[in-house]
């Protein structure tokens, strides 16, 4: 190659940029892209987990999926769980953020304490809640009995609809702090003048909330809902550890179904098919999220 003319600055810089990202891209391809593609590939096989012996079945798994009661049952459970826990997280999270935005005593301590469940291991959260929910010795039943709200100990995790309600509640408890963090950060960035101007214009506290706070929160709430919807949709640990999908399959979501197919029923091909179906749903979510954030960046 000739040395003149010298390579342009832009080209030299681009080369540095590519060198910097190269290790990441390599790791990405090896541990994410390759497994993703093989998941799709595996979904075309029938594989027995212990021996890993596979047999090509084409799209049979997909036709089986559409006809499978388990799949639709899990899809419905996923929907109920996601919508239920997300709504609670949202309402509770926004309310908590508004409270924590008030001037209260030990404000920063209160803020930190509220965030704690979010950073706790799901394993710890589940252990604690299973102990609280314990039908014989759990404190929850005792408190409710003393308060006269129930007359006999409730079986929280072994019956429907209690089991679904329980995981939705625990999910809300564990994840609402995320909503608090984001909303609180946004609340603090609303200029005080807006409220002062509204007060001068004669708006009361409620009007100030609906006319200023809510519109200012709207964009950030849309993003929070999307992110939380994605994360709740794919939740595995919490539900698996709380109920294991039971009683029977009453709280089995798609994530749990994938796990069960692959490692209990030893049907890896079928499990991959379920996983690919989940991936497609999430792809849709992600696209909506991207559109939304791009819109926010432009706006």
């Amino acid at each position: 190659m000739h040395s003149d003319p010298p390579p342009s600055l832009e080209k030299r810089y681009a080369r540095i940029g590519v060198v910097l990202i190269a290790p990441t891209v390599l790791v990405f391809c090896a541990v994410i892209l390759y497994p993703l593609i093989s998941a799709i590939y595996l979904s075309l096989f029938s594989i027995y987990t212990p021996t890993l012996a596979g047999e090509w079945v084409g799209v049979d798994n997909y036709t089986a999926l559409l006809a499978s009661g388990d799949f639709w049952n899990a899809a419905l459970n996923t929907l109920i769980w996601t919508v239920g826990t997300l709504m609670l997280q949202l309402v509770f999270g926004v309310a908590m953020a508004l409270l924590l935005n008030q001037s209260i005593v030990f404000q920063s301590l209160a803020r930190s304490l509220v965030l704690f469940p979010y950073f706790l291991s799901t394993v710890v959260a589940v252990l604690v809640w299973r102990w609280l929910f314990n039908d014989l010795y759990g404190i929850l039943n005792h408190v409710l009995l003393i308060a006269g709200l129930i007359d006999a100990p409730v079986n929280w995790l072994g019956q429907m609809p209690n089991a679904m309600i329980s995981i939705i509640l625990v999910g809300a408890w564990k994840y609402f702090p995320f909503v608090v963090i984001v909303v609180l950060a946004r609340l603090q960035s609303i200029p005080e003048q807006l409220y002062e101007a509204a007060t001068i214009d004669g708006a009361g506290p409620f009007q100030r909330f609906t006319d200023i706070t809510l519109p200012q929160l709207r964009d950030v709430l849309v993003v929070v809902v999307l992110l939380r919807a994605i994360w709740d949709f794919k939740e595995f640990d919490l539900i698996y550890l709380m109920t294991g999908g039971g009683p029977v399959r009453a709280t089995q979501t798609l994530s749990l179904l994938v796990y069960e197919e692959a490692f209990r029923l030893n049907r890896m091909g079928m499990a991959s098919t379920y996983a690919v179906a989940m991936m497609l749903v999430l792809l849709g979510f992600t696209l909506v999220y991207l559109r939304q954030t791009n819109r926010l960046e432009e706006g």
Binding site: F28, Y34, L36, K234, A262, M268, M279, L290
Partner: peptide
């Protein structure tokens, strides 16, 4: 690439666990 990063950030682990299990074996 940036979009791909986001996508994988939101990807469920349960999708990857099967191929990773096979890969490790």
């Amino acid at each position: 690439l940036a979009t791909l990063v986001l996508f994988t950030y939101l990807m469920p682990s349960v999708v990857l666990v099967i191929p990773l299990y096979l890969m490790m074996a």
